[in-house]
Design a protein around this nucleic acid. Sequence first.
DNA 1: TTGAAAGCGCTAACAT
DNA 2: ATGTTAGCGCTTTCAA
Lengths: 361, 361
Amino acid sequence: MSTTPTVYDVAERSGVSIATVSRVYRNPDSVRAETRERVLTAARELGYVPSGNARGLASRSTGILGLCFPDYSDPDAEAGEADDEDAAMLYSDQIIRGMERAARRHGYALLIAASLKGGPESLVAKVAGRVDGFAVLARTVPTEELEIISRRQPVVMLAGPREGTDHLDHIEVANFDGQSELTRHLIEDHGLRRLAYIGSAEESPDVEARFRGYLAACRAGGLEVADEPDLRVRMMTQAEGARALDALFARHGAWPEALVFANDQMAVGALHALAERGLRVPDDVVVTGFDGIPLSRLVRPALTTVRQPMLRMGEEAVELLVKRLSGARDADPVSLVLPVSVARRGSCGCSDGEGAEPGVR
Amino acid sequence: MSTTPTVYDVAERSGVSIATVSRVYRNPDSVRAETRERVLTAARELGYVPSGNARGLASRSTGILGLCFPDYSDPDAEAGEADDEDAAMLYSDQIIRGMERAARRHGYALLIAASLKGGPESLVAKVAGRVDGFAVLARTVPTEELEIISRRQPVVMLAGPREGTDHLDHIEVANFDGQSELTRHLIEDHGLRRLAYIGSAEESPDVEARFRGYLAACRAGGLEVADEPDLRVRMMTQAEGARALDALFARHGAWPEALVFANDQMAVGALHALAERGLRVPDDVVVTGFDGIPLSRLVRPALTTVRQPMLRMGEEAVELLVKRLSGARDADPVSLVLPVSVARRGSCGCSDGEGAEPGVR
DNA sequence: TTGAAAGCGCTAACAT
DNA sequence: ATGTTAGCGCTTTCAA
């Protein structure tokens, strides 16, 4: 681990110029085979590895794509080793996976970084300075900052609404459509009329879109509903989902026929709490979620929910970036809305047997 | 997205030297507040973002740690959207998570890349050239190549045996101990004597270590066992786990009292297949796994298994790298063996109620 | 096919 | 507190 060999060392040892050494790596065919071997041998003997930094600097490109996502670290979470599945974390895991896969196909590596505010050197700047283009999960970075950076390099915004970032490529999921289709299913196919919606206090645009989808379906179905969710929780966790029941019990005269949760975590928590109270799902009350996390298939009854294609979101993000990087730099901003699908399972009264559920009884 | 502003542009616009611009970013306090503001303003107006490449080149460090892992892309896997949980993928997800978390704590970002062989520019070289240090999942990269690279920068090897990489830092999990403790539990605490071990055809060192742990415990318990697993499957998937039963049925005169699988996936598959055959677990036959994937808690009966601390593995890897990077470059190679813990659950006949199993009934 | 030389954008002494 | 000046290790014309 002494000194780091450079092109000069390799050049000297193999008796060629540094230009030739460079060529051997960038465009092997442009060098006579014999020379090439000589260079490669010298490189191996010296333990030479090209410096990505120098390369990037000279060629103005890094071969790296980036992803910035929010810091989900949960103060409470430190407790258990094998934590309970955190939806947000699963969410970003999937996106990472999707991006990595697609990036690899295109010959890129992936740089990931969770937000963490610091001096003038914010997270994005760090990432931005090291990649050819990157994706940002909504609400990770001030839009103003993104505006500046996107003048330099392709940026694609993931999830959230487009507000204030019309100049950026953008990918979102059909939250509105998904929730409204699910709600329509409850109303029309199951004939339910007393629904309750449990959303979150924090005004996440995605969650709001879901609620609006719910509202639209309710109204289309002739139900009268307030402009506000029946309940807003703080965290969208299982625990809060379970607790939500108490709040609803306390508040409602008429117990609803269906509990429409803004995500799966809460719905699963509710499922659990309902069981403890001796209420049966879906017979006594219908429960639905949103996201389609793996757990939603595993609980009994399996959770009716809306599946989000998060892996695909990561892949699409990379496709968009790559497209920009190979020419279409000044094309108009693209806005993709990925379709979702309603998974009709046991918790709304649909058959529990949609396909095999391998390994779980 | 026209030309990219540099320190020179910012310096000129704010009437200072490039050195001052640099200082504003690297060490804000060393610049008079007024000057700093002027620079920052100019930078904002210009849309300036420091080039990570130039920085890295000049300062000989990137602020990035890396991870290379195998390409798990499964030819068959393209089928289902929300695939069935792939153990290998979960494995690397966890490590990524752990590394990202720890890296962030230390102010590093994380560069991830799955293997993919190419010309003289192999994956590692690409990663290596862009990070201050990195971790490699065993069997991702030829040891020879690692040998060369590790002369330049810290490398830590994850999982696998240490063979041929004694000069590298290394972290592994106590596969032997875990499997032997689990086996001991079956023999001593449950009084079982006819066990069958299902391993894999591919000679993964980790899996071999598990088998050796099994053997050791069997012999310590006075059982006579062959030097080979009772069965070797090709893929360690749920499907193969289920199929393993047929093979065992066909081969054995005496049906074993316990099926000891080399991982959870297979064990879960077997659980399923046993249920279909009307065999009850653990009454008719005991089943155990290895890994402690989330699914292992969710199946019924819950799977007795050995939990691997993969998240922690990622964290420890970063700690090791950071330590090397801050001085201890020439210290002797470290070899960590992370302890595992046996999760005694329903499938071996232990109480099914180890702690709450939130949300699942 | 190969070499010479001019940067790429920044940091880090060393001056002032 | 701020400016000057060398590089950092590579890619890339332009010549030979």
